[in-house]
Design a binder for these strands. Sequence first.
DNA 1: CATATACTATACCGTTCTGTATATAATATT
DNA 2: AATATTATATACAGAACGGTATAGTATATG
Lengths: 187, 187
Amino acid sequence: MSVLKEKILATATDLFQTRGINSTGVDTIVAVAGTTKMTLYKHFHTKEGLILEVLSKSQQDFQNWLDNKLNTNSKAPTDKIKRLFDFIEEWVTSPSFLGMGFIKASAEFPNEENPIHQLSSKQSREFRQYISKLASEANIKDADGLALQLSLLFEGAVQAEQMKRGSGAIKYAKKAAKLLIDGAINH
Amino acid sequence: MSVLKEKILATATDLFQTRGINSTGVDTIVAVAGTTKMTLYKHFHTKEGLILEVLSKSQQDFQNWLDNKLNTNSKAPTDKIKRLFDFIEEWVTSPSFLGMGFIKASAEFPNEENPIHQLSSKQSREFRQYISKLASEANIKDADGLALQLSLLFEGAVQAEQMKRGSGAIKYAKKAAKLLIDGAINH
DNA sequence: CATATACTATACCGTTCTGTATATAATATT
DNA sequence: AATATTATATACAGAACGGTATAGTATATG
């Protein structure tokens, strides 16, 4: 990928998170990225296309980071799901954390037929399925149910952290998650 | 309050939820409400003022409805907190439910110094404190901790429901809440 | 009848928005 | 050296934005 395209993507990611998607114009993006509109529109057909790529890349980065963390730090399936919220906490409390793209995007584009909303929804679903796979490998019976509960805690904690940095919500989400996971394992 | 002002407020509430706040222009609001811009700007100084009033009224309506439900259906403090998610489910699964204003608004206005963001944050905090009071009256030791966990489940479930209507997330939030509440009561 | 109040209708201002047209410069590739 | 490729610079079109100015109408109260 072109270095300039990456720069535009990174700049847009940051601006979308800190100022909002609809409140960030393409003029601002190219000015901050140090390039021009012509270049942006050569790499992205429309602003919507840019938004979709930003969301995709953000989620891939998160999922890859998390998957790598889990695989290098744990081997046993039960360990993996037990340590899940440790790494989520690490991600959410990192100073570079500015929010989860798909959560904000779904709020800015509430119409379920909007492609951006649909991508957000898909990413949320895929993350839930990822947790469900972890639970399933740990021999948990109602893996989907637990995954849904854990994803609620996750999205709630992210929401809280987006509203107020340093809210500490993730600490309590972790405690609640431990209770739910331990309860599900002993059944 | 003037009937027209109420009409504008109701129209804006609906449009903000279904199309997004930044994506809804004042021209659209007055057209749908069946009035003119002059009238809108006589009742609300700016669009920001309108947004703030919409958020305030929405949250008041929700809190009043919930408080009334709890007080008319339960007397014992432990019953109240145990039935909390029953009524939350009723609210969230109602056909007229279009989302929680303060959750969407905080995503559209991510800057913590923005008045709209600040109001959203305050409403989230006040709702958490309301739950904490319920927990405290039920003689739960770490009332604040439980309230935070329950509010995470609540906001996560709302987020899930905003992403996909009929997600059924609230059912699992309820189960998780029951576990957390029962655990907290027996300590 | 007169006056105040609330509302309508419409035109407009200045700004910002996404997206394009055009022309030029720098950099690789052949 | 010739030719693509990639990027810049700048100007502009066309629409939508928030907000205001002006003029006129309907209704209720004194």
